[in-house]
Design a protein around this nucleic acid. Sequence first.
DNA 1: TTGTACGCGTTATCAT
DNA 2: ATGATAACGCGTACAA
Lengths: 351, 351
Amino acid sequence: MAEQVSTGRPTLEAVAARAGVSRATASRVVNGGDGVRPHLVDKVRAAILDLGYVPNHAARTLVTRRTGAVAVIIAEPEIRIFSDPFFSRQLRGISKELTAHDTQLVLLLVEHRGDYDRIERYLAGGHVDGALAFSLHTDDPLPAITRRIAMPTVYGGRPGWTGRADGAGDQYGPVSYVDADNRGGAREAVRYLLSRGRRQIAHIAGPMDQTSATDRLDGYRDVLLDADPALIAEGDFTAPGGARAMAELLDRCPDLDAVFAANDLMATGALGVLRQRGRSVPEDVALVGFDDAEQVAENADPPLTTVRQDIEGMGRLMARLLLRTLDPVHGSQRVPGSVITPTSLVLRGSA
Amino acid sequence: MAEQVSTGRPTLEAVAARAGVSRATASRVVNGGDGVRPHLVDKVRAAILDLGYVPNHAARTLVTRRTGAVAVIIAEPEIRIFSDPFFSRQLRGISKELTAHDTQLVLLLVEHRGDYDRIERYLAGGHVDGALAFSLHTDDPLPAITRRIAMPTVYGGRPGWTGRADGAGDQYGPVSYVDADNRGGAREAVRYLLSRGRRQIAHIAGPMDQTSATDRLDGYRDVLLDADPALIAEGDFTAPGGARAMAELLDRCPDLDAVFAANDLMATGALGVLRQRGRSVPEDVALVGFDDAEQVAENADPPLTTVRQDIEGMGRLMARLLLRTLDPVHGSQRVPGSVITPTSLVLRGSA
DNA sequence: TTGTACGCGTTATCAT
DNA sequence: ATGATAACGCGTACAA
C-alpha cells in the first residue's frame, strides 16, 4: 500500500505534494512563511486554497504544547450570572479579544462545590493554556487549584482574599486581576452629592462577601467619615433587593435627601420605592447608581446618574493580560499583574 | 541520550514503566480496563494515582479523531443575548448535560456577519465534534456552513427557513432542532382567557423574524380566527417594547379586556402601561405572558399568569440529541432529529 | 533556502 | 491477556 486513503480532510502532506515541495516548506508557509522563496510561497498558498486545507489542531498542539484555548470559569451559584448585564458585557469583551488572537474560549460553568474536582482535572488535562475567572468569594477553592497546577489565571474583580491588612490569603501568592476603581468611583459619587448640597446621604450596599461591594462602601465612608450606620443598608445587587434596602432606609431615616446605590439594578429598585412613598427624584431625594448598565440606567425614569465603568474594556483587558503571559516572547513572567481601570461619573436626571 | 528529560506532566509511558507493564496495557486500563487481569489493573491504577497522570488530550484526539468538545454558537447581534434569562437557562442546561458526558463547551460569539468566515474555519479545523446554535434568522449563513462541512448541528428554536409551505430553504436538507410547542402554548393561553369570559383579547407579538414569535401569533390566530388586526401589536421581546405595544393597543382598542403577550418581559412592560393608564389587572384587563421566566413572572405585580416552557430542559435536550448523533455506537445517522417540548399554563394573579 | 528525519502522547492492529 | 509497533498530523533541529 503505497498510497494513503483520503480519510477526509487534506493534510499538510497533501498540500506539500500538490505544491511540489517538502512538508517542512509547506509548514513554514502555513506559519508565516519566513525564509521561503516568494515563488514557493505562492505555490503553497495556492495548494492550500485548492485543497481547502485547514491545519489539524490536535497535531499542532501535540508538538507545540500550546492549545490556543483559554478557559472562562464562571463560578456563581446564583441565577444572576448571566442575567446580570455585567457578565454579558465582560464576556463579550473577552470573546472579542480572544478571537482577535485566534484563541478559543472554553466555558466552564460551576454550580456545585463538587464541580471543582472536574474543573481541576480539566485544567490539569492540558486542554487550555490559561484561565479567566470571575467573582471570587473569600473561600473559593479556585485559587488553590490554579496555583497548584501552575495555571496562568487572571481574575475579574479583586479576589476577596487580597489586600487584607492581616495578610490572610497571602499563601496564594501574587495574583493578577482586573477591576474598576470601585473605591474611587464611589468617592466621586458621594462627593458629587455633597457638592449638590445633599447632607443626609444614604448608601445601599451590595453583598459584603464581594469586594466590589465592600470597596464601594469603603469609598462612601472615605468621604463621609462619620456617617450614621443607620444610613447604610445591605442589598444583594438585584432590583428587589434594592427596593427592600430603600424601604429600610426610609423607615430608619425619613429625612434622608440622597442615596448612593452600589449598582444600577438596586438603584432602579430604590426608585420604585421612592416613588411609591411619594418622594420625587431628584427633588426630594437624589439618586446615584453604579455600572452605567445599558438598558437599565438610561431607561430608568428618571434616567440614572451613575458611575460608569468600561465593562467590555475590562473584559478585553483580562484577556489581553492573560495572552501576554502566555506569549512565549514577552510572557516569561508567570503572573500577569493587575490593572485598576478608571471610572467616570455620568450625569443624568436622577441627581 | 537514553533518558528523556521530564518536561512536566507524566505520560502513559511513565505510568506503564512504574506499573511494570507495557504502554498498551496501561492504555487499556485508562480506557475502562476491559480484558486486563485485575491484578495489573490495580497496579496501573496505583501508578496513575502516584504520578498524577492525566491523559494528553491532543494526543488522544489525534488518533481517535474525536475532540470531546462541541461548539455553542450564539449569533445574536443584540445586547439582549445574555441579559435575556432565556439564554442563560438554556446554556446552563447545555452545560450540565455536556459536563455529564465529559464534553467541553466552546463558546463562539458572533457579532458581525464577517465573523462567519472565522466560524467556518474554526468548525472545519476539527476543534469540535458538533455544534449547537441559537436563534437563527431566515437569512442566517450558518446552516449553509454546517451543511457544507458536514458538521452535526442542533438548533435551539425552529430555524426560520423550515416548515415553509413554499419549500423555500429546503436546500439545507433535513435539520434538527429543539423547540417548545409555541403554537400550542399560545392556543392554551388564549383559550383560557376566553374561558374566563374575556372577549376583546389583544396580542403583543414578538419580532416577526423569529419563529418563536410567529408561532405564538399563529396559535393566537388559531383560536381567534377572525381577530381584528388592530388587536395585534408587534414588540421586540423587551420590556420597553412591550410597553410601547401596549400603549398602541390601548389607543387603538380602548375596550380590550385581555392581553396575551408573547413573552414575560413584554408582559411586564405592558403591566406598567396598564397601571399608568388606570386599568387594573386582572379586573379590567387580564394579562398572560410566555416563558415563565424566573425573576420576572413571579416577581411581577401582580404575579404573571404565563405559559411555562422548560428552558433548561430544552438546553439539556439539545445537548443530548447532539451527543447521541456523535456517539459512534448509536449515532450512525447524521441528523439528530427534532423535538418539540410541551408547555403548560401557570396560573397566577394576572389572569 | 530547502529537505530529511525525529518526536510529540495516544490508540489500534497485530502477533504472541 | 499482553506486548511490539505502526499510525495520527505537525513542527523543527539539523544537514545539505
